[in-house]
């Protein structure tokens, strides 16, 4: 049962409440569902909706997105046009009007599609807490979460160069489905040969994972059908797939190479 809902008007006020042990939430798409089903462990909610951590700021090639920025805000941002197609694969408009960038980092797979994008982009996460503000690579937040009393205030990323961003999500239907396999990648090439690759996968492990085996295999080689099939098979070493209502673990492992290839070759 919820005994209090806090709507702090600053990060400092939110930090005070968070230190006392409440559950910090963004849009509520995950937390309120737990409130409604009576499964939320915490008894206090702390909403970041009015804490001044919304908005998208572009400074050269660096984009800082406030934690309470919604997916709908990203869809309307011309600076983040490269992400628009990916956003439209996430849930439905009434969810995208609520769901936030910060909250998505804490969503178990096969949800949390935006976290997969942030992992591919090598984003930095800004965190507030009892020890003051700190920054951490998105990998760390995805694997270890944040400490008791801490919460995310923003993510920062570098805009990928033209033609280096790739995204593909295999779903049960064209819209509003969780991931069977989601692939997000930043791949640089020179003279047709891969010079660097950051590939993130969703739907194939409890949390978003880097396909480091595929990245290693692709580097120094051309983005071609057979090479990508080989990279996709290699990526099976990087995943820990699960059964759910969308697909079986067996199926996810089986189709991963196909979707990795489609992500990078279309």
């Amino acid at each position: 049962m919820i005994t209090a809902v806090r709507v702090p008007d600053s990060v400092a006020a939110a930090a005070t409440y968070a230190a006392a042990g409440g559950r910090v939430m963004g849009g509520g798409t995950i937390v309120m569902a737990q409130v409604n089903s009576g499964s939320l462990a915490e008894t206090e909610l702390i909403s970041l909706r009015k804490a001044g951590v919304s908005g998208i700021r572009v400074d050269g090639r660096v984009v800082r997105i406030g934690a309470a920025t919604t997916f709908a805000d990203i869809e309307r941002s011309p600076e983040l046009a490269f992400l628009h197609a990916a956003m439209r694969t996430i849930a439905s408009p009434p969810i995208r009007n609520l769901a936030t960038v910060g909250g998505n980092l804490f969503v178990p797979q096969p949800y949390g599609d935006f976290a997969v994008c942030l992992l591919a982009l090598g984003a930095t996460v800004e965190i507030a807490g009892p020890g003051g503000p700190r920054r951490a690579p998105v990998e760390d937040v995805l694997t270890a979460g944040v400490a008791q009393g801490e919460f995310v205030t923003a993510v920062a990323l570098s805009l990928p160069a033209a033609g280096t961003w790739f995204h593909h999500k295999a779903m049960r239907r064209k819209l509003n489905s969780a991931a069977i396999v989601a692939v997000a990648a930043v791949v640089d090439t020179a003279d047709g040969v891969v010079t660097s690759a950051r590939i993130a996968l969703g739907g194939v492990a409890p949390r978003p994972v880097r396909a480091v085996s595929a990245e290693r295999l692709l580097t120094g080689r051309p983005l071609e059908h057979d090479v990508l099939n080989e990279a996709g098979r290699a990526a099976r070493a990087d995943i820990a797939p699960f059964d759910d209502a969308y697909a079986s673990a067996w199926y996810r492992r089986r189709v991963l190479p196909v979707h990795l290839r489609r992500a990078l070759l279309g």
Binding site: V7, G28, A72, L98
Partner: peptide, 15 residues
């Protein structure tokens, strides 16, 4: 003016 799932909105947060 934006559609939302009202079951997911804590009403205190939209005062």
């Amino acid at each position: 003016d934006r559609p939302v799932m009202s079951c997911l909105v804590a009403v205190e947060t939209i005062e």
